[in-house]
Design a protein around this nucleic acid. Structure first.
Length: 360
DNA sequence: TCTGGGGTCCTAGGACCC
DNA sequence: TCTGGGGTCCTAGGACCC
């Protein structure tokens, strides 16, 4: 039995621990400090959600929908500490824990005789030790557990059996299926798919024409509750990046170059702390028109030298030759390797493949 | 009405190699 | 002289997730 734990309006709930006076009021945690800044809602309290305020909504719109909302600037260091505290509690309930973000995790409760009781105990302990609530879903795989945790929120606990899937989920929007985002939802709508049930039963070829064969296979399996993924307790990072959105759109190359220097410095400092280095440097730019461009270059060696990364970043900015001012710029490194780790073997390093024709 | 930041995975074409 | 084909790496873009 797999459990999926999802902390309830996590960032807001953590803020309320130090601002109890705000409890019961519409609260928004955002990366911007005013309704005029170019920010979005990171988390909205349930009181704010009543007004149609939700994650990723622009602050300008959020403010229009709920002018009385209290805007709290985000404090990621605090949320990371709180996250660590709750993950430590989860770890007391299972040896197999997959952290799936600051506010969610999967646990393997197969070793437990009464998983639902264990889950209830875990929710209790989280509330007792941290003052935070969470919603837990139980299922025979990650997908069912994840869907289950969404069925009763906040402070929920629900079990979703594969055989109950049609009864409890078929009528819900296909959007609850992981992998169905705004674009896929539109394409699905084009072939008459609105609900999970529609997706589960649509003729495969029709679905494949709409979203591609590969995607179609995965989506239809999920709509039927099937998911073969294992928990992944340890995940090696594959890339690391920093980006920043400006208060206003910028064309000044010298000024942009200075931002690249700063971002490269931050990425390299962080990689250094994690004893990692990368081979591919990627420059990301978002134009005033919102189009996103990337330019990348792969080095023959791994690096976390801020000067080298910044120099490459500036070169890539020249190559980019943007025709519009930029609203965002970012620098990332991928192809990461931990210090002392041998590079992945190339074909030449392996033993020669020998065909023993005589043996046949 | 205006759209963050940090990630993952997938696709597709071209280069290159055997 | 119309045609190899498979595998891997690199680059760019897109969708999605939290």
């Amino acid at each position: 039995m797999i459990a999926h734990v999802d902390m309830d309006s996590f960032f807001v709930s953590v803020e309320l621990l130090r601002r109890p006076d705000l409890r019961g009021r519409p609260v928004i945690v955002a990366n911007g400090t005013s309704a005029r800044s170019r920010g979005v809602v990171m988390t909205a309290s349930y009181e704010a959600r009543e007004f149609g305020v939700h994650s990723a909504l622009s602050l300008a719109v959020a403010h229009r929908r709920c002018p009385q909302a209290i805007l709290v600037p985000s404090d990621m260091r605090l949320y990371r500490r709180a996250s660590k505290a709750v993950m430590d509690i989860f770890a007391e309930f299972s040896d197999t824990l997959e952290v799936a973000g600051l506010d969610e995790a999967y646990l393997d409760l197969s070793g437990s005789i009464a998983p639902k009781t264990r889950a209830r105990e875990m929710k209790h302990l989280v509330r007792q030790r941290t003052g935070l609530t969470c919603s837990v879903g139980l299922g025979s795989n990650k997908l069912l557990a994840k869907i289950a945790s969404d069925l009763e929120k906040p402070d929920g606990l629900s079990v979703l059996d594969e055989t109950e899937m049609p009864d409890r989920v078929d009528g819900l929007s296909a959007r609850i299926i992981p992998g169905v985002g705004p674009k896929t939802e539109q394409r699905l709508s084009g072939v008459g798919v609105q609900t999970v049930g529609d997706l589960a039963r649509i003729e495969f070829e029709l679905l494949a024409d709409a979203v591609g064969r590969n995607h179609a296979r995965g989506l239809q399996a999920r709509a039927n509750g099937q998911d073969g993924r294992q928990l992944e307790p340890v995940r090696e990072p594959k890339s690391e990046s920093r980006e920043t959105t400006f208060d206003r759109d910028i064309s000044d190359l010298e000024w942009l170059g200075a931002r690249i220097d700063e971002l490269a410095g931050e990425v390299c400092a962080s990689l250094s702390r994690g004893c990692r280095a990368g081979r591919t440097v990627t420059l990301k730019a978002k134009l005033a028109s919102f189009q996103t461009l990337t330019r990348s270059r792969t080095l023959p060696h791994h690096t976390r030298d801020p000067d080298e990364v910044a120099r490459l970043g500036r070169e890539l900015l020249d190559v980019l030759d943007a025709a519009e001012p930029l609203r965002l710029i970012g620098i990332g490194l991928s192809g990461l390797r931990r210090d002392g780790e041998s590079p992945p073997p190339t074909v030449d390093d392996g033993p020669a493949l020998r065909l023993d024709l005589d043996a046949a």
